[in-house]
Design a protein around this nucleic acid. Structure first.
Length: 117
DNA sequence: GGTGTGACCGAGT
DNA sequence: AACTCGGCCACAC
């Protein structure tokens, strides 16, 4: 069977994060079978347009493990992410997102989406 | 091919 | 809570 590229698997996981929830880079890496590779996730998201030109990737639902947006505060990218999250009901208060409330907790069926790798 | 740089993370202070 | 530090690894010089 054909092994999907690592970047492709990462995007697959990101596509599973439900609207109104967020996941951390490290969490996505773990679920994609790449433990300890959080930085790879950030790179994959940056390239997501090229990796999956066929779908809209909800990159804004990925924040760092501290519940903070990883772009520089006040940057265009930061504001875009903050406002897009807010439109889904995810609030950034004092620069942080309440992960206990908004953090994605995958159930078994979320994880078993694709056994091809 | 060494070196610096990240949309990171966890532990330690 | 804020701040280092070491580990991480693909990429661009």
């Amino acid at each position: 069977m054909v092994e999907k590229s690592k970047a492709f698997r990462i995007i697959d996981v990101v596509l599973r994060v439900p609207k109104g929830k967020v996941a951390s880079y490290g969490q996505v890496a773990d679920l994609a079978g790449l433990p300890g590779r959080a930085r790879f996730v950030s790179r994959a998201l940056k390239q997501s347009k090229h990796i999956r030109p066929d779908v809209s990737v909800p990159w804004h639902r990925i924040v760092n493990a501290q519940g903070k947006i990883s772009f520089a505060t006040g940057s265009d990218a930061f504001e875009l992410q903050r406002q897009t999250l807010l439109a889904e009901g995810v609030e950034v208060i004092n620069g942080r997102i309440a992960m206990k409330q908004y953090g994605w907790v995958p159930n078994l069926s979320d994880i078993m989406f694709d056994l091809s790798y």
